[in-house]
Nucleic acid binder design. Sequence first.
DNA 1: TGCTGTGAACTAGTTCACAGCT
DNA 2: AGCTGTGAACTAGTTCACAGCA
Lengths: 271, 271
Amino acid sequence: MATGRTHRPATRSRGIPEATVARLPLYLRALTALSERSVPTVSSEELAAAAGVNSAKLRKDFSYLGSYGTRGVGYDVEYLVYQISRELGLTQDWPVVIVGIGNLGAALANYGGFASRGFRVAALIDADPAMAGKPVAGMPVQHTDDLERIIEEDRVSIGVIATPAGAAQQVCDRLVAAGVTSILNFAPTVLSVPDGVDVRKVDLSIELQILAFHEQRKAGEEPGADTAAASAGEAAGAPAAAAVVPPAPRGTAGGSGRKGPDGDVPAVMPA
Amino acid sequence: MATGRTHRPATRSRGIPEATVARLPLYLRALTALSERSVPTVSSEELAAAAGVNSAKLRKDFSYLGSYGTRGVGYDVEYLVYQISRELGLTQDWPVVIVGIGNLGAALANYGGFASRGFRVAALIDADPAMAGKPVAGMPVQHTDDLERIIEEDRVSIGVIATPAGAAQQVCDRLVAAGVTSILNFAPTVLSVPDGVDVRKVDLSIELQILAFHEQRKAGEEPGADTAAASAGEAAGAPAAAAVVPPAPRGTAGGSGRKGPDGDVPAVMPA
DNA sequence: TGCTGTGAACTAGTTCACAGCT
DNA sequence: AGCTGTGAACTAGTTCACAGCA
């Protein structure tokens, strides 16, 4: 997979660490806000606070892009906005298609944050014939049949999948076959794609589960000082009920057992 | 901030690495799917493939939870489902409130993946009086005025913010004051919270920006071999237009310049 | 024989602390 | 004097590779 040079501090744009790339949009947003307030310069300290990171990390991140600051002064806001935008590729126009126009797809279509960052919604696509032609976010929904034509005509390279889990892989395959090389996946499934195609995943329920994990820890540790002995009564922020699935400490072979309820296709709405 | 023991391989549940916690929901989903197909056991190799990670990582992850596998055989699916659920705290009932019932809030309210994982939507809250009482996902929307009462009565400890950026911090403050200790933030803002409150952030446009970054790299490197000189013509997968903001290689003081359009409040819909 | 569980080696990311410019 | 830029130290996360058990 072309690992490139092992690692080098990168005098210029080569090899920006992934973690840094993930933070650039954060800096960009903070800088945009400053720019709108006509603030001419910021120190790493101020900008870091606005972006919610620490200043050493921010300076290190910027050092991968080049030396855009002025010692003793700080960073020129407008200049830095441009440099980061360029680095992220936002000075170009990126047409995207959104497939699956349920609640989530509609929310995405209406999302102002795309347009203002160089992304242009080229088409909204849904498999439901009843949706076809209906306007969503001021744009008619098109049928899945036209997917390939749309991708090719508009030279779309980024696709957003907001379909139910069951449809996601199929949609993904068609997008990729038509020329899409980056996919943002909201469906709760693992997508398999050929080499050279990027997939990023946003999973609404995973984030909640991670919060629940930490929340659970808090409940157990809250009362004591730090070393955390188990609390006797009910801890302050502890949740209400408890008990959902009785353990299955080691089943024999056995049947399915549970009735298999909402199961694993919890996507937002049919496409 | 109470770093705890520096690090220990963790014979039991103490100190599960954050990266591992973030993957547990992935494993859980894959296991649930297997469970529904009544598959009794899986090898680390199979499960890893289903979850989209490599098997060494999966085994290491599971080793932090304990030794739940059988050498030569694999893992008991039902048993592992239970163990991971328990570890994540999903065997409890977690009431959550969703604040901001625009398109996104509605999508979240309708999302089946919550209910099936121990999360219960306790209330939908919106600041718009016109929304109050309207049913969304079979549940009446309640007004922001009742926020504190709802949180306290239902002992809600997890809040989801799906308001526009401008309202997010204020909503957050009220949630926290009322007793919420975990927040899932969809608004494109940095929230500041007191110690002991967890915030996780999902940002729709950040993910796209990260994709754009990689997409841009692909376009530049595709034609040539590796060192990537600028391509003369238009590269294969390159996007259409180009040119958004002309550089400002070092402005003087100057005014705001750009007209300040959609700006930085690109949230999905008013709350 | 086949698979898990895990030390050990490696790689990525973060933080410290200070040299060097303005 | 003040703030950036960055080596160096540290911490977290991943991958390797194999011992050990079923």
